[in-house]
Design a protein around this nucleic acid. Structure first.
Lengths: 342, 342
DNA sequence: TATTAGCACTCTGCTCAAACGAGTGCTAAT
DNA sequence: ATTAGCACTCGTTTGAGCAGAGTGCTAATA
């Protein structure tokens, strides 16, 4: 695809590969020597000049080697990248880890551990958006009186998720009434995702539920609170890894990233709008300008064809895409299997 | 206290104050000029030489100014420091923030917001150890069947804390038996802190509870899990603030701190062993060597004279102790009031 | 016509020495 | 007891000079 000659592609791949590993601008000599092309440096220079004109490479300054542009990386990821197999050491590590993870029964717990594993294996920053409660399907609601004033609201979803929260109980409410309200709500709400039980929907209910508006109001607040907590459940791992990347030795750049890392909502945006499978976003393809010099590889873990949450690996645009993608795929398989078994 | 002459104390205070604000070694000239002492630089030089010999000051190299040693800071904090009042801007900010916080009904939520406020106001890193479940006093246990296989275990503590978790239900267990077990457990466990319901204690119960060991086993695991989650509830704020401190411009040092920040257990250690009130730990007084160049100001929020959790501010040893301590005190007052009202 | 060798040129990064400046300790004067 | 003065120390900055890597262009080559 694209109108790049076979030879240009070979050279582009060589440049990207080399730059990924050395973080230094790549010169024509290096290519011709290190990558067994049967071409002289001069020829390669010409080709590289072409590639620069076409927008795949750039020069940090005249008379330095070339480095890939965002477009160059994109082409590499789409067409040139070759997947590296995991080493047996890595396979073993993964196996051992998932042996542990199998014992855990809560998806958030599993995923929270995974974030460390991802960071460890990739040497980049990894981030996870915990299971999105609001995307689950409502199954059942219970209200369990605790004492005179308080009750526990328990919400069950089809993904086996149980969420509970305390609630003030209106005093003038006998247990039959309560039971009736709960029954009514259960009938009305069944089968919808939490997200769909929006303010509007529930407000409709509010009106139709002649009395006891106070209680429903509180439930509404609770639901909102729970949905809001979704975006708070972002976990980070390996933040210190960025410091290993020469491009982030600069305190300024790094500082901006660090600040970003503390804004859960922002991270949510970064991870949120995802198609099902694995995706690679390079530089400014990301929705936040703070990461315009980073790339993000994401994938969602699924239950019943519905995405529950998302894993991501964040590194410099010069990240080792091949490796990260492979690791990501392997881990997603395993997680999905685990989720199914819950 | 201590056997430091009035004059030496004045000079020490001047050195510390100046160093705190400039981060540069302080010379004798600076002191005599900037701090209206009616003494010549030469005299001050002599005194500073004494102070160095006594261990309160050090020289980064011959012919540089002096900087306070750990001992110097300690003396400053204990005897010399003067508390700076908050500016009205700060007071307003605080008032506004706590107006918001009052609306929240969960201690963890409150405290999680506070961490940002602390970081914002101090310009250092702030950390919070969430309410320690294991220190709460057991009040009541409920087991609520959800469906054929699962039940919800609800644990109430005297601090109004409600914690719940799903549990596999042994099949061969009718509801009367279940009720009896729950009743028995409630009688046995009442009035103790979760921490005290240790493995040993519960294992004793296990034996005396002729049958249904499986269920109690599961409960045990659940309890342990919940206690373990305590140490996971460490929240950080303002990590990017460290970069503002010249002493952490060095990527190495900073990296170590960042790694520390990801180890919840380690942070727990840092915050855990605290007396009731406000404490200042300087450099190596801290239990972890990773922060041997940092100081940590901590305070616990209380309920019924029992510490629930801890707030902390971490900065370089050259931190503005006066300011941090004042801010901390004010915030603790407010939090404690809030906790009481829950 | 495509490739290559050669060469002049550019730009960065390193090293080295010199100059600078802030601060000290000591001595002698007040 | 204090202070002015002075020689000395040591880190930091500055600028020149040089080496190295890489380019673009031109002319020769297959």
């Amino acid at each position: 695809m694209k109108d790049l000659s076979e030879r240009k592609q070979r050279i582009l791949r060589a440049v990207v590969t080399d730059y990924i590993h050395t973080a230094e601008p790549v010169g024509s000599r290096t290519i011709s020597r290190r990558y067994h092309m049967d071409l002289s440096a001069a020829t390669i220079r010409n080709e590289m000049a072409d590639l620069e004109e076409l927008g795949y490479l750039t020069q940090p300054h005249t008379s330095a080697g070339r480095i890939p542009s965002q477009r160059g990386y994109r082409f590499y990821v789409d067409c040139l990248m070759d997947m590296v197999e995991l080493t047996t050491a890595e396979e073993n590590y993964l196996a051992r880890v998932f042996l542990q993870l199998e014992k855990m029964r809560e998806i958030d717990q599993i995923v929270q551990h995974t974030v460390k594993v991802l960071a460890q294996m990739t040497n980049y920053v990894s981030l996870v958006l915990g299971a999105q409660f609001k995307r689950s399907v409502f199954k059942q609601l219970r209200i369990i009186p605790l004492d005179a004033e308080r009750a526990l609201v328990v919400l069950l979803t089809d993904s086996g998720y149980v969420r509970s929260k305390a609630l003030e109980l209106p005093k003038a409410l006998n247990s039959e009434e309560l039971a009736r309200i709960v029954k009514y709500l259960n009938e009305q709400l069944a089968g919808q995702t939490i997200e769909e039980l929006t303010l509007l929907r529930l407000q409709g209910l509010c009106r139709s539920l002649y009395a006891k508006i106070d209680l429903v109001d509180q439930l509404l607040l609770l639901l909102e609170e729970m949905s809001r907590e979704d975006s708070t459940r972002v976990f980070l791992g390996g933040t210190a890894n960025i410091l290993k990347q020469p491009e982030f030795r600069d305190v300024e750049k790094f500082g901006h990233l660090l600040e970003l890392f503390e804004q859960d909502e922002a991270l949510g945006i970064l991870l949120e709008p995802l198609q099902g499978g694995l995706s690679v976003r390079i530089g400014t393809e990301n929705p936040l300008q703070e990461v315009s010099e980073c790339s993000l590889v994401t994938a969602s873990y699924m239950l019943y064809d519905r995405p529950l949450g998302t894993l991501g690996v964040l590194g410099p645009t010069r990240m080792d895409y091949g490796k990260v993608v492979v690791i990501m795929q392997r881990i997603m398989e395993k997680i999905n299997a685990l989720v199914k078994g819950l």
